[in-house]
Amino acid sequence: MWQPLPDIGGLIYMSRIQDALTGKKTFIGFVTAGDPSLEKTEEFVLEMERAGAGLIELGIPFSDPIAEGPVIQDANLRALSAGCTTDKIFDMVKRLRQKTQIPLVFLAYLNTLFKYGYEKFCSKCEEVGIDGLIIPDMPFEEKGELAPVAAAHQMDVISLIAPTSRQRIQIIAKEAAGFIYIVSSLGVTGVRSEITTDIGSIVEAIREVTQVPTAVGFGINTPEQVNQYTRLADGAIVGSGIVKIVAQYGEAAGPEIYKYVSRMVKGLATD
């Protein structure tokens, strides 16, 4: 979904994702779609928006999520056991889009898209109103098979940059779309008490080559961490912290998610 930039007469377009991360600091919330049910996923997204989230990541559950820690692994299994499928998720997003215009991105493993068919998947995303894709097992070198298809359907493929990326940072950033997902730590997703990566210098290296917004994820679970990272980057992504609440409260997680996200949003840097 692309919107005209009013001040330049609509000649250059800014995606809904970039719009959400430009000129303000943004909280990005993640839930696994279908955990515990797709009806609840809809509710959780709306609660996060109400609490001040500016962008939502929806995880498409996968049998073998190799980039996830135990919290999100379990959520994937819960969603799959509850009968969640890619098609049912598309239907849910379609319903959700009648209630909100918040930017939505899918986090999916490449096999989900490959098996569905890249063209069919991306055209379905465009139809229901998905704005971007995060594919944790598709590095820069392998994006060629998906990126042109996604672009033809106005879908931003979000690039990931890790603490180990070093000389790859600028190569990746130069071709980035939507926003750049900075992975804060080595390893898999999950709450961490301490993050030692020098996010500041990663952002600096990115800024030398692109103005595409940045967001930091992996391990963030406190408003203080949100504050620390949104001083450096444009957004902070929280996944496991929210999914833990779903694991604990199940169907009744909505109000708890609202409370949690409200608290985290207060941490956003103000400058």
Binding site: I66, A67, L110, P136, D137, M138, P139, F140, E141, E142, L160, I161, A162, P163, T164, S165, R166, R168, I172, V183, L186, G187
Partner: peptide
């Protein structure tokens, strides 16, 4: 074939 792995492993 190919290299469908997380970015964290690419340099390694």
């Amino acid at each position: 074939g190919g290299q469908y792995i997380p970015e964290t492993l690419m340099n390694e």
